[in-house]
Amino acid sequence: MVGKIIRKLRIEKGITQNELSNYLGLTPKMISFYELSERFPPYDIINKLADYFNVSTDYLLGRSDIKNPEKLLSDYSNLSTDDLKVLEECIELKIKDK
């Protein structure tokens, strides 16, 4: 799963495996191994990938569908109390539907 996510993020950003490998200090072949799930990136590479693509490590590892929860929360910091209350109610309804 991690490999598919890395590939998806790389393509979304419009960069090549070579460009990503240069940023990470790896060979393009290693990026290929990661994307094909032939190798699993070590934790330091996971952190670098998360920083580079501006996503959480949970998203990168397939544990969350939210790319960047901190950004999501900051986007709501300017909402009024009434708007936050409506948003909270919508979230509670969505959770109950599951």
Rank of each mutant, 00 (worst) to 15 (best):
L26G: 08
K4L: 11
T57F: 01
I6R: 09
L93K: 13
E35W: 00
T27H: 01
K94S: 09
R7C: 02
S37W: 01
D75G: 15
F53H: 14
V55N: 05
C90Q: 14
D51I: 14
I15G: 08
I6A: 09
D58Y: 09
K71T: 13
L24G: 02
K48G: 14
R10Q: 01
I91V: 05
G3T: 01
T81A: 13
K96G: 15
Y34V: 01
D51S: 14
L24V: 11
N22A: 08
K13I: 10
K85L: 07
S64N: 13
I45E: 11
G62P: 02
Y43S: 03
V55I: 04
I31C: 03
I91R: 05
T16N: 07
R39W: 06
I45H: 10
E38L: 09
A50R: 13
D58C: 11
I91W: 02
G3I: 00
M30P: 05
G25P: 06
K96W: 06
Y76D: 08
P41F: 00
L26M: 05
K48F: 14
L61D: 03
V86I: 13
L87H: 01
E88A: 04
E92M: 06
L9A: 08
I31K: 06
E38F: 06
D82M: 10
N78D: 07
T57L: 10
D51F: 07
T81G: 11
L73P: 01
K96D: 12
D97G: 07
R7L: 06
N18T: 06
N47T: 15
G62D: 12
I31F: 03
L20I: 12
K94D: 03
L72F: 04
K29V: 13
F53D: 05
I45F: 00
E92A: 11
D65M: 04
K29P: 08
I95Y: 01
N68H: 08
Y52R: 05
E70N: 09
L93V: 04
L73M: 10
K13E: 10
M1C: 06
R63L: 15
L36H: 03
L26S: 05
E70R: 15
L72Y: 13
E35G: 12
K13P: 07
S77P: 00
C90M: 14
G14E: 13
Q17R: 05
Y52G: 05
P28V: 02
S37C: 02
N78I: 09
L73R: 02
L72N: 08
S21W: 00
E38K: 14
E92S: 13
L73V: 12
Y52A: 12
E70T: 13
L79F: 03
V86N: 08
L61I: 14
D75K: 15
K96F: 02
K96P: 06
R39L: 11
L93C: 12
D65W: 07
P42G: 05
G62M: 15
I31W: 01
